[in-house]
Computed example of a mutant assay.
Amino acid sequence: MTEAPAPPPPPVIHDDGTSATRYPLLGQPHVTLSGNVDQAMYQSFRDQIAAAPHQGTLVVSISTLGGDPEIARLMGDEIRLLRDYNQREILFLGKVAVYSAGATFMAAFPADKRFVTRGTRIMIHERSITKTVELAGPLRTCVASLRANLHEIEESVRIEEEGFRDLVAGTSIPFDDVRARAPENWYIEAEEARSLGLVLDVI
């Protein structure tokens, strides 16, 4: 009985100095997200993760003008769990615009696992709130209502700062710098992001 012939070896890709040879997996992300960061994006994220290969490096790309920061944190937490429990390398690829909640999602990836395409902008800003507080009833109840709203804001600030710390971990950006610049909407171009260590490379 003759043995089946061995499969041909994979083609050898010689490094010609281009992104395509240095990072071949980035050309076809396994998970591609675009649009508003909302429940619909989260569902698409879950569906694409489920359909992606269960072994090997996973590439997740996103292009967004922003959206719900808590959904961005939720997707980021799922990336962390997938990385920690499955010991997988997961790469981030930002395309065109990585604004607001997109940057929050990017913070879930270590700085040396982040990439952006040429011409991409990252925008970091602080959370905002729009709320009208009406006071009516016993004075103690009014005080409790005001304190509850203040606590909501204070906790949101703490969550925001946790995200800023994750975003700049392993980069040359001091935490105080990102906290100081976020209120004015800090736009970072792709090449600047690379020079700051916010991403590993531009493709």
Rank of each mutant, 00 (worst) to 15 (best):
N86V: 00
Y23N: 05
L26K: 07
R179Y: 10
A52I: 03
G197E: 09
D177I: 00
R118N: 08
T132P: 01
P11V: 06
H125K: 10
G119I: 02
E192D: 08
E70T: 03
Q39H: 02
I129Q: 06
L135N: 10
A97N: 13
Q39C: 01
A144D: 14
T141F: 09
F92G: 15
D176V: 00
P10Y: 07
V98W: 12
P11G: 11
I188M: 13
A193H: 06
A144S: 12
A190W: 00
L200E: 07
M106F: 09
L200Y: 01
I188R: 06
T117K: 13
R22N: 06
V178H: 06
K131P: 05
N185L: 14
Y187H: 05
A72Y: 03
D47Y: 10
A51W: 01
P11F: 10
D112I: 04
T57P: 13
L33Y: 05
D68V: 01
A182H: 01
I188K: 09
L91P: 02
V202K: 01
P174H: 09
F175K: 01
E70Y: 08
R147C: 04
S195M: 12
A136R: 11
F175E: 08
E161T: 03
P5M: 14
V143F: 07
T132V: 08
A108T: 09
V31I: 12
T104W: 01
E89P: 10
I71M: 05
S100M: 02
D84M: 06
P5Q: 15
V133I: 13
E192P: 01
F92S: 15
A136H: 08
Q39K: 12
G17C: 08
L33H: 03
E192V: 05
T132H: 03
D47M: 00
A180E: 13
Q87Y: 02
W186K: 09
R83Y: 00
I13D: 06
S63M: 09
